[in-house]
């Protein structure tokens, strides 16, 4: 019987080396590229006609656009407009990776901590740089809550600093752990179906059916959470209030 971890293995499909760096095309790369192609299909091919009365694919593209546009407008405000394409890309990329991961025999790039951490770190560093560029040293007032006695500040400022620097970890582990746990769970219960055979296997099978629905919801939800937290961090950096 296979280990439930086997599904997360990186398999090199094409071996490449660049300098000393291993840049092999792996199953993870394959599904990232498929996600990019499908997203391009929806957002570019779907919008090709630019119809005033949209068709099905165009409606999907507009829905995704307006969903993220509304999120950025509500959480960041007008100054967030510049970053809207980035947040849309982030959301769509994570969403497509997550959902495509639900296809049997596929691979979920977002189930790897290195991928989610890279994205989270990029967001963290980017947001911090935006804050510093916008406010200079005044940016550090983000760590000092307003209207608090100075004795409490001794306690609160370190907490604020820790909570700030923990952001890339919480952001990346949340997504990675959700993907990991969901897929592992499905695999484990899949194993139960085989183990319990034709007589007892129906119960875990029914669970898998229900859980697959839940996993699809989580696939969307985690992409949403990643995008909205990025918006909130961006808002903190731009407006400096809690």
């Amino acid at each position: 019987m296979h280990s439930p971890m086997e599904q997360f293995e990186i398999k090199r499909l094409l071996h490449f080396k660049l300098g000393g760096l291993d840049v092999s095309f792996t199953n993870s790369s394959l599904w990232m590229i498929i996600a990019v192609i499908l997203a391009t299909g929806v957002f570019v091919v779907g919008m090709r006609q630019r119809a005033l009365v949209p068709g099905r694919l165009q409606s999907v593209a507009e829905l995704g656009y307006e969903f993220i546009a509304g999120m950025v407008r509500e959480n960041v405000g007008n100054q967030g407009k510049k970053y809207f394409p980035f947040i849309l890309t982030l959301f769509i990329f994570i969403l497509f990776c997550n959902v495509l991961g639900m296809v049997p025999y596929s691979f979920t790039p977002t189930s790897h901590i290195v991928v989610t951490f890279a994205m989270a770190l990029f967001v963290f560093v980017g947001v911090t740089l935006i804050g510093l560029a916008k406010h200079g040293l005044h940016f550090f007032s983000l760590f000092v809550p307003k209207g608090v006695p100075w004795v409490l500040l001794l306690l609160l400022v370190p907490i604020e600093i820790i909570s700030y620097f923990i952001r890339p970890f919480s952001l990346s582990i949340r997504l990675f752990a959700n993907m990991l746990a969901g897929h592992t769970m499905l695999k484990v219960f899949g194993g139960f179906v085989v183990m319990m055979g034709i007589l007892g296997g129906w119960a875990p099978l029914a669970f898998i059916v229900v859980f697959t629905g839940l996993e699809l919801l989580i696939a969307f939800l985690q992409a949403y959470v990643f995008a909205i937290l990025t918006c909130l961090y961006l808002n903190d950096a731009i407006h400096l209030h809690h």
Binding site: R12, T26, V36, Y65, I92, P109, V114
Partner: peptide
């Protein structure tokens, strides 16, 4: 390899989104 291809895929998707889709 994951990070390299993540960068490639993300940059391509970002360009597609910001230049064409949006």
């Amino acid at each position: 390899p994951q990070l390299v291809w993540l960068a490639i895929a993300f940059v391509v998707l970002y360009l597609v989104m910001s230049r064409l889709a949006v």
